[in-house]
C-alpha cells in the first residue's frame, strides 16, 4: 500500500463525510412548517438508532447468547429509568460474565 494512495483515501473519506454533515445544517436556515416533514424529522433519530441496534447488537459480542442477555439487561435497566452510562456499563458487565463462562465451555 503506497502512501499517496493512503493519503488520497483518507482525504476522500473525510471530505465526503464532512460535506454530508455540513450541507443541511449550514445552508438550510428556514424553519420547516409542514406538519408531515416536521413529524418525519422528529422520528428520524429513533428510527436510526432502532435500525442500527437490531439485529447488529446480537452479533457484537462474539456470542448471540451473551449479546441477547446484554440487550435484555439494557432494555430492563432503561425501562427502570437508569442513565446512559450505568445501562452501558452494567450491560457490558453482564456480557463479560457470560462470555467468561461461555468461552470456557465452548472454546
Amino acid at each position: 500500500m503506497n502512501n499517496l494512495y493512503l493519503i488520497c483515501a483518507v482525504i476522500t473519506m473525510a471530505l465526503i463525510t464532512y460535506f454530508i454533515r455540513l450541507l443541511p445544517l449550514t445552508f438550510f436556515r428556514k424553519k420547516i412548517t409542514n406538519p408531515y416533514i416536521k413529524s418525519f424529522l422528529n422520528f428520524v433519530p429513533y428510527a436510526v438508532l432502532g435500525a442500527m441496534t437490531i439485529p447488529d447488537a446480537f452479533f457484537a459480542t462474539g456470542s448471540i447468547i451473551s449479546a441477547g442477555f446484554g440487550i435484555a439487561t439494557a432494555l430492563f435497566l432503561s425501562l427502570k429509568g437508569k442513565g446512559l452510562l450505568s445501562v452501558s456499563l452494567i450491560s457490558c458487565l453482564v456480557v463479560l460474565i457470560l462470555n467468561s463462562i461461555l468461552f470456557q465451555i465452548l472454546p
Binding site: 447488537a57 432494555l75 435497566l77 432503561s78 437508569k82 445501562v87 452501558s88 456499563l89 457490558c92 456480557v95
Partner: peptide, 14 residues
Amino acid sequence: SLGIAIYAMFIAII
C-alpha cells in the same frame, strides 16, 4: 464484551 456498550447506550436513549 465491550462490543455491547454502544448498543446498550442506544437502547438507553430510545
